[in-house]
Design a protein around this nucleic acid. Structure first.
Lengths: 216, 216
DNA sequence: TAAACAATCGGGATGTTACTGATTTTCAAT
DNA sequence: ATTGAAAATCAGTAACATCCCGATTGTTTA
């Protein structure tokens, strides 16, 4: 039995590469390719493949919503997300939309074949780096529907983080908040421990991602 | 005669795909792969390939500066940029750095083989969509709307800035670049003076805006 | 050739951070 | 009202980072 696949990615050379890799597998065949979300949905309905390999960042219709539509409008078509983002919000949204797998583009091709075979047995497949993220989020969400990623940090910690990400020095922050430098130190330490981030640069990126500061 | 290539891209599955495509060409061989800029330069010096296929957005050292280094430190090694950006500044800087070709990831693989063969005859190759951008720039000599990081900072300064924005400490940077901590200090000071930015957080935001680092 | 730039390094004063420990405040639950 | 947990506060000390000064060497450019 031949496994039928559709490849959806907005970069043709990436599709070409994936097709070359997949067609080295004797039991797999790429029946169609798409470079945007709308076409992907259309082709999925038309070809009813076993698997759609879905990039997230695509024009017209993003991979998440394309997945949702495929789930609504077809039966038995599984979606495996192939993304460069390990951002937990993307992962969660993709899984909510009905994806059966989530792979990072960092992965080796062999991981994709494992993912395809796993997904076809009805089980989900996640990249190891992704599993961690998802489990943490899941555990956090169990007791209450707290959508905020900031359930980790206290409001004071968020204040301090924001000021750090705005480029303020420890001394300046202490002055702005009318507390001692040592207290600011401790807050920063606590923030870094909680987030497992240990540089101002990465802290800044985190704050940007979470909307605590802007890039300007 | 076999054409020797090095593939540099931070996504393993993309490298896997490109390798699969290239190795279907009987006269081409991938002699090495790299997932960051510094390794790419090292491997180029070591293997002296005919062509380096170079992604622009890579950790440690971006594709533009990696290209510049390869031009300085090797002879006869051609670089073909493979980028998802058609941003004018990236194209111009990449060509100034010494790249012989600039392909968009939208391109088909066949275009890459054409590019490789063209570049080996000593001629440049650009994706059709790119040609337009470049010609306008050269013919009309439009003033660059914003002075980019490439015109303000030296290549060494950009290296240091990128590592700072990736969260590396002064000590780590000194170790990575094999220079003294004091030199890194001076570079950072020089960077901050030139940009009139005086915190790691704002430096990080600047690096993000200029494409020297990514938000994840 | 002189001037400017790039890359390298050092001394010394000051500021920041990591690690450890501790006190006070707040506030919800019993 | 008391207890317990979390939050917010602060300090000492060693290591590290940063700022401000100056300096050397090689390369490029006017």
């Amino acid at each position: 039995m031949i496994i039928k696949l559709i490849i959806a990615d907005d970069h043709k050379i990436v599709r070409d590469g994936l097709r070359a890799l997949i067609e080295r597998q004797p039991n797999m065949k790429v029946v169609a390719e798409a470079s945007n979300g709308i076409t992907t949905v259309k082709l999925a309905k038309q070809f009813l493949p076993d698997i759609v390999i879905m990039d997230i960042g695509m024009p017209d219709l993003n991979g998440v919503d394309a997945t949702r539509k495929i789930m609504e409008e077809t039966k038995g078509v599984k979606v495996i997300a192939l993304s460069m983002h390990s951002d937990k919000r993307f992962v969660i949204e993709m899984l909510k939309a009905g994806a059966s797998g989530y792979l990072l583009k960092d992965s080796a091709f062999e991981e994709l074949t494992v993912a395809i075979n796993t997904v076809l047995t009805g089980q989900p497949y996640l990249s190891p780096k992704i599993t961690d993220v998802v489990l943490k989020e899941y555990v956090h969400k169990l007791p209450e529907n707290k959508p905020s990623v900031f359930s980790i940090l206290t409001s004071r910690e968020r204040e301090v983080l924001q000021l750090i990400a705005e480029g303020k020095s420890t001394k300046e922050i202490a002055s702005i908040l009318n507390i001692s430098i040592k207290t600011v130190d401790t807050h920063r330490q606590q923030i870094m421990d909680k987030l497992n981030i240990h540089s101002i640069a990465e802290l800044t990126k985190y704050a940007i991602r979470e909307g605590l500061t802007s890039i300007d």
